[in-house]
Write a protein that binds this DNA or RNA. Sequence first.
DNA 1: AACTTTGTCAACCGCAGGCAG
DNA 2: CCTGCCTGCGGTTGACAAAGT
Length: 300
Amino acid sequence: MKVAGRTLVKMGRAPCCDKDGVKRGPWSPEEDQLLVQYIKQHGHGSWRTLPKHAGLLRCGKSCRLRWINYLRPDIKRGPFSPEEEDSIIQLHGMLGNRWAAIASKLQGRTDNEIKNYWNTHLKKRLLCSVHSPLVLKLSSKAEPINVKSESPSTRHMIQWESARVEAEARLSMESLLLNSSSIRKTDCDYFLRLWNSEIGESFQNIKGEDGGVCQSPVSQKSSPTKCGSAGSDITVQAKNTTASAFANITPQQEDSYRPSVDEMMASSDSLTSYDLIDSSDAALELLLDFPDGDDEAFQG
DNA sequence: AACTTTGTCAACCGCAGGCAG
DNA sequence: CCTGCCTGCGGTTGACAAAGT
């Protein structure tokens, strides 16, 4: 793979930087200092020329990455709070792997950090709670889920997710009809806006009403085996439902219901069997009333 | 104590999109 | 329009640490 990449470079693609004489690997404190000092005085300007001006033997990309992911003064370091975790899970449910978009909603966190956290903590945690309603639904469409048996916030999340899937199916249909690739972006932008709306707000607030944790018999039953990092088993169990209700889908499972419009619509159909209540009714309504040629209304 | 496996995360890579000329 | 450059993004890697045997 790497070999192929390098071959590609050789075959004509310009390298991002001159590899000769360019330092790679971990940054030393001295390099950090040089970079911070330079940016404080001059701003980053052109990343490509920055290393030269700052006296660094690094490529611009490397400098940019170091600054954005580590040296920026507004970076919040340390462990993710439960609220942040919830936000990541919810936003990931809406946006998928758009880490930059997710990061923009979490003050002080970088896309890289969120991506790493998702891949190392949350994803595993989600995979551990195999009994999530959503997964059960996906694996056995014939069996409707009694959403009412879940806690309010779990229900709410399922409803939110169902609205998302429904909209996704709809948008997918539209994109097919319009043969337009821009729809996907609009889709995500739309969710971001929805997230910022009172609907999203009410959705976020439900955490407060529910103590920030969703509990269900299912999650309580979930395996106490090593699902997450050491020392957080309680959190793991508590969070399982939140996570699973929302995005407990392996990439394979995700693929299995995303690509085909038929499948999507089928999925969407089965979702209507959900007991949609509370404010998600409004969200669903909003999503279903998504205007066909009216994307401009949602663009910055 | 030595070795192996697993987990974490900073850093790298190539690609895509925006933009200026 | 076309082309080339630059930036930002998401996927992946690899070094290091911790846990397990």
